[in-house]
Design a protein around this nucleic acid. Structure first.
Length: 603
RNA sequence: GCCAGCGUAGCUCAGCUGGUAGAGCAACUGAUUCGUAAUCAGUAGGUCCGCGGUUCAAAUCCGCGCGCUGGCUCCA
């Protein structure tokens, strides 16, 4: 019980002991040891279970098991108890070194075929194993010296899930058991509390409670119905973006939702993206519901001869696209089959790329800050240097693009992670992941080069030299999709939107019937000032209406009764601070107009 | 799509090993006219996800669908 003794006592594969005091490294070793301990518990409880892999992960650890019978929920408790028994027995993690040949013999003798496969692939002539109780595992370590060092209250077995061997869906499916562990019991409690907190913020739950959106079983999964209040928020988001984009030289376009298959054959989607496209036949012709907006924007580009003087051209569209997604991946508004991208395509010359990228990065950060996100992570995805031939575009294209991306980031003093081999085949990209109020990352913005579409559609512009050149094309989304963004906003603010985004900004609460006329006057004034206001004139007590408004997370309540009627004022109640006292309506209006204008997060 | 779990009123859930459904909140009606998070009383609301099967009898057991949840894979 209590705090883990630091530094952590560990043993390396060669048998030497050591101490780890770096908390991150210690935690990783601790969790990895925990996964071995779980494997030992499982093997002892369920003989005939074979082992896959069992690493430490960001919030804990897991182990993949191969067993003909299925684990059930109740098994988790048993496993946890068994692990505690093994801790009490104080088993040691015993390392030893053997030859590859010997290891293969032993492991295949035990029927550990997955381990044999791993040894074959990963091990050199000599390899290390750890023995814990009756279980021997192929592992480089290090591990704790013995199980007695583990605090029995520092871990928890969480859930069972399916997983494919080596992450390949063509391979056999294993049963993965997840657990979590921390060096301090306090950290474990905090983690479990964070899970609870995340549950409370779940946009699916809040979306229903706040009457923002729904998904209809009858209409089909992955398709979102935006209710009036959700649509209000959506319009506010879209209006804000429209204003900002027009200011920055974008033009909006509108393109059809379906197009002949020919368009998608030219773009290459028909070949590479077919499994995700909804298609249908009419009059012997095949049509595709658009999964992307780019070919549409290209159609507009191609309607006339373009000059270098026209570039850069920035076409934006809140384009609704439909993509077939496997049923198991759908998730509320965050992963759907029909969604609206805040899409844009920039056609420019090579010389203009650096400026465009730089402006884009500034724009992304400005927009995100406006929505109340201050923390973010930037990832630069580049191609796999060893498989250059798998990528479209020339060597010069890739160098030019990577150079523009890295220079833009560096010039802005932005830290980024370089993701080797993570680029899509048609070009490198920058992704921005936002960190929300409880520390979770969300992938939203993306800026991508495209070296294939200009070629496939044979795009050109006439340069100052009088001859035709191929423009560079950039895809870019700031919010990603309006659906996902609203989902993220709901979770970030736990449903309590800042006043500039709130679907209802003010609710007026008359104390009794005789105050309704004055409440109506107050409402009239706020409506004139374009405040989104409602009046709660139900035959209920004030406390009831306040509670209702609090539950609806409405920023301000204006209570009007005899006193306010007399003084011609309003009593202001803020959803976070509570009663702010009586004040003149004009003063209140001026205050909230300020909050709205500055997109203040707090009230 | 795969593995596991789940599906009872608008919402949250109860309903033991089979004997044909219940609570709270919400909704509606009436009374009450109220000062910073729930006034009282009444009414209505269900193809127990759907379809088959077992059984004298199925919300409950079995099969197949559909949907949801957590993972895996995918996210041109």
């Amino acid at each position: 019980m209590g705090t883990m003794k630091m530094p952590l006592k560990i043993r390396y594969a060669d048998g030497t002991k050591g101490e780890i005091s770096d908390p991150d490294a210690a935690l990783e070793i601790y969790r990895h040891s925990m996964s071995h301990l779980m494997a030992a518990a499982v093997c002892s409880l369920f003989p005939g279970t074979h082992l896959g892999i069992g690493p430490a992960i960001s919030d804990g650890f897991y182990y993949d098991f191969d067993r003909p019978e299925r684990f059930v929920e109740e098994d988790l408790k048993k496993i946890e108890t068994k692990m505690k028994d093994l801790i009490a027995e104080n088993l040691s993690f015993e390392p030893f070194i053997i030859s590859k040949e010997e290891a293969m013999d032993s492991f295949s003798g035990w029927g550990e075929n997955l381990k044999v496969e791993l040894i074959q692939e990963k091990a050199s002539e000599k390899l290390s194993c750890y023995r814990l109780g009756d279980v021997v595992d192929f592992c480089t370590g290090p591990h704790l010296v013995e199980t007695g060092l583990i605090d029995p209250d520092s871990f928890h077995i969480l859930n069972i899930a399916g997983s494919y061997w080596k992450g390949d869906e063509n391979n056999r499916q294993l049963q993965r058991i997840y657990g979590t562990a921390f060096l301090q019991p306090q950290d474990l409690e905090d983690y479990l509390r964070r899970l609870e907190e995340a549950k409370k913020r779940d946009h699916r739950k809040l979306g229903r409670e706040l009457d923002l959106f729904s998904i209809s079983e009858e209409a089909g999964s992955g398709l979102v119905f935006w209710h009036p209040k959700g649509t209000r928020v959506r319009h506010i988001i879209e209006d804000f973006l429209k204003t900002e984009l027009y200011r920055r030289g974008y033009e909006f376009v509108t393109t059809p939702h379906v197009a002949r298959d020919v368009l998608w054959k030219t773009s290459g989607h028909y070949e590479y993206y077919r499994q995700n496209m909804y298609a249908f036949n009419i009059d012997d012709e095949e049509f595709v519901i658009k999964p992307m907006n780019c070919p549409g924007h290209i159609q507009i580009y191609k309607t006339r001869m373009r000059s270098y003087r026209d570039l850069p051209m920035r076409y934006a569209e809140f384009g609704t696209v439909y993509r077939y997604e496997k049923s198991g991946v759908l998730h509320g508004m965050l992963r759907v089959r029909g969604f609206t991208q805040d899409d844009a395509h920039i056609f420019c010359t090579r010389d203009q790329v650096y400026k465009e990228i730089s402006d884009l990065i500034d724009l992304v950060l400005y927009i995100m800050k406006s929505f109340g996100f201050d923390q973010y992570k930037v990832e630069l995805s580049v191609r796999d240097e060893s498989r250059k031939e798998d990528y479209a575009g020339t060597e010069e294209d890739w160098e030019m693009a990577e150079d523009a991306l890295t220079r833009s980031l560096r010039d802005r003093g932005i830290e980024w992670t370089r993701m080797e081999g993570e680029a899509v085949f048609y070009g490198p990209k920058i992704d921005v992941k936002l960190i929300d109020a409880i520390g979770r990352p969300w992938q939203l913005s993306t800026v991508q080069f495209d070296f294939t579409l200009p070629k496939r559609f044979d795009l050109s512009y006439i340069g100052s030299d009088g001859s035709a050149h191929q423009p560079v094309m950039l895809h870019r989304a700031l919010l990603g999709s309006v659906e996902r963004f609203l989902g993220v906003l709901i979770e970030h603010y736990a449903g309590a939107f800042p006043i500039w985004l709130a679907p209802v900004q003010v609710v007026i609460i008359p104390i009794s019937e005789r105050h309704q006329e004055y409440a109506g006057e107050v409402m009239q004034r706020l409506v004139e000032a374009d405040i989104r206001v409602e009046i709660d004139d139900r035959n209920e007590k004030m406390g009831y209406k306040i509670r209702a408004a609090q539950t609806d997370k409405i920023p301000y309540m204006l209570i009007v009764g005899d006193k306010e009627l007399q003084s011609k004022e309003v009593s202001v109640r803020n959803r976070f601070q509570g009663d702010e006292g009586s004040q003149p309506l004009e003063g209140f209006l001026e205050k909230i107009e300020g909050f709205i204008k500055t997109r203040a997060v707090q009230p």
